[in-house]
């Protein structure tokens, strides 16, 4: 565990908590893409199946369980409890265009052709593009509440911090994972336009 990795995980956790609190406090999920949230639930489910097969650390297991619980909790709030506030008219990104290529790519490019490894690879690929329905929704409506912007900033920062962690691990531990690195860079690049707007608007006002 290095400082970049820890900050990345904190940022990830913060993003998920911001989103849950926003929905809970305002009793509304307006402006949030249910499709992105479903993709994230698929990502965590596919990746964290190793909870049953391998133990790494208490930190690792607890964080995985928290991410899973928060993700399914968000889906429950969006699609059941505060369903009436879900803005589905603006949430129209075709997620099959993300899922199918990720399935195909994970079958072709993976570390090992085994079910768990392919699911892990699929989750890495899908995570890199899972935010697209949300970014599409923001660009379609032309606005995002500031709390939604904070959520996106924290969620985008998480993978950017992981990139620094991978650079650190490459030098400190001679350890790297090409699949995670390439997907992580793609993921971070997708947020660049948003980061730019967030920072300039945050500094100069609207």
């Amino acid at each position: 565990m290095n400082v970049f990795r820890l900050l990345g995980d904190i940022s990830h956790l913060l993003a998920i908590i911001i989103l849950l609190l926003k929905i809970w406090k305002t009793r509304s999920c307006a402006g949030i893409s249910g499709r992105s949230q479903v993709l994230f639930a698929v990502v965590y489910t596919a990746r964290y199946l190793d909870l049953f097969t391998s133990y790494i650390s208490a930190y690792n297991s607890i964080m995985k369980l928290v991410f899973l619980a928060a993700s399914y909790g968000t889906i429950y709030l969006m699609f059941i409890k505060f369903k009436a506030s879900y803005d589905h008219n603006h949430d129209t990104f075709r997620i099959e265009f993300l899922i199918l290529p990720c399935v195909l790519l994970s079958l072709l490019i993976n570390h090992e052709f085994s079910p768990l490894e392919i699911l892990w690879t699929f989750s890495i690929y899908l995570e890199s593009v899972a935010i697209l329905p949300q970014l599409f929704m923001v660009s379609k409506t032309g606005e995002a509440e500031s709390i939604t912007s904070h959520y996106l900033f924290a969620l985008g920062s998480y993978r950017a911090l992981y990139i620094l962690n991978w650079i650190y691990r490459y030098y400190a531990e001679s350890h790297y994972d090409v699949i995670a690195i390439v997907a992580g860079i793609v993921q971070t690049v997708l947020y660049c336009d948003f980061f730019y707007l967030y920072i300039t608007k945050g500094i100069y006002g609207q």
Binding site: S54, N60, M63, K64, Y162, H175, Y176, D177, V178, A180
Partner: peptide, 10 residues
């Protein structure tokens, strides 16, 4: 250099 997946990450 190890190419193993970084499975200790989240």
């Amino acid at each position: 250099v190890s190419l193993k997946p970084l499975k200790d990450e989240l």
